[in-house]
Design a protein around this nucleic acid. Structure first.
Lengths: 210, 210
DNA sequence: TCACATAGAAAGTGAGGACTTGCTATCTAT
DNA sequence: ATAGATAGCAAGTCCTCACTTTCTATGTGA
């Protein structure tokens, strides 16, 4: 019945612990309450630390948010990469990829990213601060797309097709105001994704019938 | 050299005048400064009236913003309707329509609408208040699409194709952080729109060669 | 072990934001 | 013409938010 000995965490541990707690809390707040409601107080409450702790590690709210952006950007690329390991031969395959991408795009990490992007449009400082993460993410997405689909598409069409797909899914995410983003797609959206899959496959798969 | 006589505007005129001044100012602020920076003070400064004037006509800031949404929704439908009066036979035709739609989607009225939609995701009250305008706009867009493209597409595919197109353009608008939204499309975007046009035309135009 | 640096908490502070409160000016009905 | 209503202004009120300041606790290097 002995109490555990004092944890004796090293300073670096404490530091890293509260920083990731803050970043995760920031993601949660941004994803479910939006940019404006993500006040430093809200993040601290969610993280279970004081505001003093926050401002020890991040000089400004914006610095926290930029760090949050970089935090989720890596996750987003990873999630995109794991879209599908298997082939994308048939229309069904591509439709499955799109359906899965839709759920990825609706995930909290992506919601967070979008929330910050929208805020950046109206805030030149934030926009500049996010630029590196933005460009890095774009490049990594293109790399991932090349790995996944590179042998199916002409190199020149890779970026444009990626643009069509992810912009459409982002647009969907923005117009999906449902409180529950994990809800089922709805008939129109379902059919739209199916159509897109058909169009892509038919565009690039005419010689090799499967 | 006589001074003009006192304008003698009727009360209804004065009322309507400042109301539309406020709504237009609200559109301007939302489009170029974003939702958060669209304070009542900012709108009043832009409109050239006092805050008292604002709160005489709108009980809350949110009421002003909802009215603003309805104000721009009608413009947006009209702009969409005027997309193209001519035919959409060839790939070039459809590509032209998409290019024009892109500029429409980047217009201040549409920026405003998106800004409010994004805010609505995090604000249940605003979401509910915008619901009627949202549904009305969606229905009118579908009507317009039916008028424009109804004889080219199966009725069942109208909504999904519209969804693909406008969501992709909305996604583009969100990821376009450039201070000047009227800038040229950029190579990837250009090619993406072209590809989309080709895919749509080839999907639906195979029997009637032109 | 002890001087020191770092991590974190609690209670401020000052600015900005939504909304109010009188007060004045302009219109309208009698 | 004049009383009552409506439009508009200027100066508040109160609250929230980003950020500070001061103080305590905990790990670190000699």
């Amino acid at each position: 019945m002995s109490f555990p000995p004092p944890p004796r965490r090293t300073q670096a541990d404490r530091r890293a612990g509260t920083i990731t707690a803050l970043l995760d809390a920031s993601v949660t707040c941004l994803a479910e309450r939006g940019y404006a409601a993500t006040s430093t107080a809200a993040v601290c409450a969610e993280a279970g630390v004081s505001q003093g702790a926050l401002f020890r590690h991040f000089p400004t709210r914006q610095a926290l948010l930029v760090a949050t952006a970089e935090h989720v950007a890596t996750r987003n690329v990873a999630a995109f990469r794991e879209t599908v390991g298997s082939d994308v031969d048939t229309v069904d395959d591509v439709a499955a990829v799109l359906a899965h991408l839709r759920t990825v795009v609706l995930s909290p990490a992506n919601q967070t990213w979008r929330e910050l992007l929208v805020a950046a449009r109206a805030d030149a400082d934030l926009r500049e601060a996010l630029r590196p993460a933005r460009e890095s993410l774009q490049a990594q997405m293109l790399d991932a797309a090349a790995d996944l689909w590179g042998d199916r598409l002409p190199a020149d069409d890779l970026a444009p097709v990626l643009s069509v797909v992810v912009n459409m899914l982002d647009g969907l995410a923005f117009s999906a105001l449902d409180p529950d983003p994990a809800a089922a797609p709805g008939r129109t959206v379902d059919r739209a994704l199916r159509l897109l899959a058909e169009m892509i496959v038919h565009r690039y798969d005419q010689q090799e019938t499967r």
